[in-house]
Structures are given as structure tokens and as C-alpha cells.
Simulated assay, not measured.
Amino acid sequence: MTEPSHRSRRTGGRSARVRQAVVDAAVTVLLERGPDHFSVAEVATKAGVHETSIYRRWRTRENLIVDALLATSGAVIPVPDTGSVRGDLIELARSVATYLTHPAGATFTRAAAVHVDDETIAAARRKFWESRLQLAAVIIERGIQRRELPRATDARLVLETVIAPLHMRVLLTHEPIDDTLPERIVDLICAGLSGTDTSISALSATGGPRVDD
């Protein structure tokens, strides 16, 4: 996957240029200070605009943080095609883990989780995640076509179950994501999808059952 980027396409017009300057400054401050110490005043200084102008347009620091991230997200997590559902899900989980353990990726993820009171920005965030889940759903669709998975498999639920434990460690428990975690998560999910009778304790100890590819 690519390293998070904070460049975006520039459009014409003074308003667009000012917005781009604020967005670029916001991402810079976010990377330098993190979401907890993000300051609108510092963004205004870096962008060369009045702080009141930022509040007039975005209203809250949280709205600015999320809008800037959505407008400048250049991070791409590729959809793997290894020939098996298990392999694809492991590669996807590893890519997500790599992104989350990158300092910029971890910062962006924490910042993107903040509450916003602007419905337009909230809707853009929902659309952002929907598009990525839909893109990755091809992994499950291929698995159904290869008869590795039941036809009624819920692609969104499977994908959410793969990535949620990784995000939990970054956002909630602040535990490290070790190299074996992506595979252990996927094997636990594959065991459930295949109806394998394997205890959670056994999965934790052995790294999970293998699903026939």
C-alpha cells in the first residue's frame, strides 16, 4: 500500500485556493501534533488566513480535521487476488495493519474517528468507508464463485470483522499489532464460515485452522 499522502488536486478560484491552503496546513499540523494537540490557531498561521475564517467555514476543529482527511486521502489499500479467500483476507489484513502501524496512518485513523456535527462531512465520511468496503467485497464475491463460501455470505460483515480488531488496537487498547495477528484473525473468521469446530483457545495457541484452498 502507499504511504498516506496529503496532496490533492488543486482547483481554480480564490476560495478553492484558500480552502486548499487550510486543508494542507491542517494535515501538516495533524501529522506534527496529532489529533489531541491539533490547533486551529496553528493551522491559520500556517495557511496564512484568519482563525475566524476557518471557524466560519468549518465551525469546529473536529469538522476541519475530518474534512481535511477526506479531501486529501491518498492512501490506497490494494485488493489482493491470491487465489483463495483465506489468502486474500490475510493479505488485506496485513495491508491494513501496515497502514495502521505507520505513524501517519495511525494518526489519520485516530483523527478520522472524531465526532463531527456537520452532516455534509459526516455523509462524506460514510461514503468514503462505503466505497472501500464495496471495493474489497470482490474478495468475498470471488470466494462465492469458487464455492469456498456459502452464497449467502455477508461480504460487509466479513470485511468489518477482519479490520475491526486491528482498528480496536489503534483506537481503544493501544496494543501493538504483531505480525501474526492478521492471520489469526482471518483463521478465526474462516473457521466460522466453514463451520469448523475449533475453540478460541486453540485458535489463539496454534494460529488458527487452515481452510482448504
Rank of each mutant, 00 (worst) to 15 (best):
P4I: 02
R7P: 03
S8V: 14
A16M: 08
R19K: 14
Q20H: 15
Q20D: 15
A21C: 06
V23L: 12
V23Q: 05
V29G: 02
R33T: 07
P35N: 07
D36N: 13
H37R: 14
F38P: 04
A44W: 00
K46E: 12
K46V: 15
E51N: 12
E51Y: 10
R56C: 06
W58K: 05
E62R: 06
E62W: 06
L69G: 01
L69Q: 00
L70R: 00
A71F: 00
A75F: 08
A75I: 11
V79F: 03
T82F: 02
G83Q: 06
R86H: 12
R86P: 07
G87W: 03
I90E: 08
E91S: 12
R94Y: 03
A104R: 08
G105C: 00
A106M: 11
F108T: 03
T109F: 01
T109A: 10
R110K: 10
A111I: 01
A112N: 12
A113Y: 04
D117H: 15
T120G: 13
A122L: 06
A122T: 03
A122Y: 05
A123V: 07
A124K: 13
R125A: 07
R126L: 08
R126I: 05
K127M: 14
W129Q: 09
W129H: 11
S131C: 10
S131Y: 09
R132Q: 08
A137S: 15
E141I: 07
E148F: 04
L149E: 01
A155N: 05
R156I: 15
E160Q: 13
I163W: 02
P165N: 07
P165E: 07
M168I: 11
R169M: 04
R169S: 04
R169A: 04
V170T: 08
L171I: 08
L172A: 14
H174T: 13
E175Y: 10
D178I: 06
D179N: 09
P182C: 03
V186E: 02
L188Y: 12
C190N: 10
C190G: 11
A191K: 01
S199H: 10
S201P: 06
S201Q: 14
A202K: 14
A205H: 11
T206P: 01
T206Y: 08
G207K: 05
R210L: 13
D212R: 14
D212P: 11
